[in-house]
């Protein structure tokens, strides 16, 4: 990909994010009981979805990497994991900001909140395994193995904590009776989701590029060290 395509990607991402911001603050109606603070919902939910997407990519890329052994997939998994941690951190930051005025508490140990926190811990551990491995090649394999297990763990963690106790509202979308969004809110959520997906893709592409360049620089450095002095 040449440089202009990166520029195009960033420009497109910027446009979508601006549109989403406009819709969130100007177009979407104010929620009747929660008021203005509910607008954080669009960022909160979009970040949560993107973090799941990112962790799914980590798991899938990990499986392909273990099967083929090609380092591109490992690099993809590494980039996606970093972004996943970024977005899940966003979820954990926007959640309490919204919860304090609405639930009158920053945090509750309910199924979704606890699962998000466990998820955050799992993927921070994932990044640590990668970074702290003695041998980088084995580190990539450890990370792939841990990424697969971590992702499989998510539904089980969620299920078990849900049985334990729950307070978080059931899913607004397809969450059964009493759930549902006003059409304008729905449009805004979809726009926010699209913008965040684009942001994820843009960051993933740029991050991938940076890591590839760093790898190339590293191997060039090693090659020059091996060359005998003239």
């Amino acid at each position: 990909m040449n440089r202009y395509r990166y520029h195009l990607l960033v420009a497109l991402c910027f446009l979508l994010l601006e549109t989403a911001l406009y819709l969130v603050f100007m177009y979407a109606p104010t929620e009747s009981t929660m008021g203005q603070v509910q607008r954080i919902f669009y960022f909160h939910v979009a970040s949560a979805w993107i973090s799941f997407l990112a962790f799914f990519v980590v798991c899938a890329a990990g499986i392909v990497f273990l099967k083929t052994g090609s380092s591109e997939w490992d690099r993809l998994a590494a980039c996606s994991a970093e972004l996943g941690v970024l977005f899940i951190s966003m979820v954990l930051l926007t959640g309490p900001l919204w919860a304090k005025p609405v639930w009158n508490t920053w945090w509750s140990w309910d199924a979704r909140l606890t699962t998000s926190l466990v998820l955050w811990l799992i993927y921070v551990a994932y990044l640590m395994v990668r970074r702290y491995s003695v041998d980088p090649e084995r580190g990539a394999r450890f990370a792939a193995v841990f990424g697969i297990i971590g992702f499989l763990d998510v539904p089980i963690v969620y299920l078990s904590i849900r049985w334990w106790r729950t307070l978080h509202p059931s899913a607004v979308i397809a969450g059964g009776e009493g759930s549902g969004l006003a059409p304008a809110m729905w449009t805004t959520l979809m726009a926010a989701l699209l913008a965040f997906t684009m942001l994820y893709i843009t960051l993933l592409v740029l991050n991938y590029r940076i890591i590839s360049l760093a790898d190339r620089a590293q191997s060039a450095k090693q090659a020059s060290l091996r060359r005998p002095l003239a």
């Binding site: 811990l121 551990a125 299920l159």
Partner: peptide, 15 residues
Amino acid sequence: MLPILLFPVSVPIIL
């Protein structure tokens, strides 16, 4: 490293 990897993943067993 072991508890950092083991504990979050084994939340369902612990619960």
